[in-house]
Design a protein around this nucleic acid. Structure first.
Ligand SMILES: [Zn+2]
Ligand SMILES: [Zn+2]
Ligand SMILES: [Zn+2]
Ligand SMILES: [Zn+2]
Lengths: 127, 127
DNA sequence: GCCGAAAACGAAAATGATTGTCAAAATAGC
DNA sequence: GCTATTTTGACAATCATTTTCGTTTTCGGC
């Protein structure tokens, strides 16, 4: 893993929530790095290809990334206010998705599941 | 509802799966309409605002729309091959999402759930 | 340490979906 | 018919992401 890619992963590790390529680029430049935007995109592409980071789409269609602690399949509970994310599991959901696919004759069934909300801190701050 | 918006909704009704604004624009032009791309975007915006159509994002971040039969909250089982979509319900998933949010102190909990697979027809065609 | 191939970089241009602008066209009320 | 309002659509502008293409680094072999 190259130094630059290492830096991108590092920046992701320091964040608790999902961050976009543009966010990470800004973070890195802010701390003095001379990294280019193209390289940030390439690093994120490689990291998500190798499964080292999770990626999902915001409601506006922007790709956001996160370095998750768990290697296993999981989903996220994401705060709409601060972006903080909690890794969650849902055996019931996994079974349901499989069953739904099978029931309608679909094969190679996969799924996307994300839960959004306002975290306790953000709720408090709003008062 | 204006004639043009009516036309967009009509085009969506004729499709069984999710379609992008560009897809619908192409469909309408193909059948002779002189509608503009901007108008298609505006119609879809209005239709989704009023809840008449469902919208979701493809893995590439493109917005796709569908005129669903059900007014109630539901999810979709979508074919990766032909785009065909089936409306599905999952009470267990609804409860799970709520519980997960509550457990971590999140409020105003919402969720996105989509199931993807290859439909029977597409599986057969691949043989 | 030195050399050339291969990999990594990054600036700038290209892409592609979506949105903003604004004048022309359709529509409604009178 | 006639003016006020809404809708429309060609075109420009945005913005995230991808391509392109020299330049710089890295690295194995010497
Ligand atoms: Zn928060
Ligand atoms: Zn899952
Ligand atoms: Zn299919
Ligand atoms: Zn649901």
């Amino acid at each position: 893993m190259s130094t630059r890619r290492e830096a991108v992963k590092q920046a992701l590790n320091e964040a608790s929530g999902f961050r976009s390529a543009q966010d990470l680029y800004a973070d890195l430049r802010a701390e003095g790095s001379k990294i280019g935007l193209t390289t940030v995109y390439r690093a994120l592409q490689a990291l998500s290809d190798s499964g080292e980071v999770d990626v999902l789409r915001t409601g506006e269609g922007e790709a956001v990334y996160r370095a998750c602690a768990s290697d296993a399949h999981h989903h996220h509970l994401v705060c709409r206010g601060c972006g903080r994310a909690v890794e969650v599991e849902g055996p019931a959901v996994e079974k349901w998705a499989e069953a739904v696919g099978a029931k309608h004759g679909f094969t190679e069934v996969t799924h996307t599941v994300e839960v959004f909300g306002t975290c306790a801190d953000c709720s408090a701050r709003a008062n």
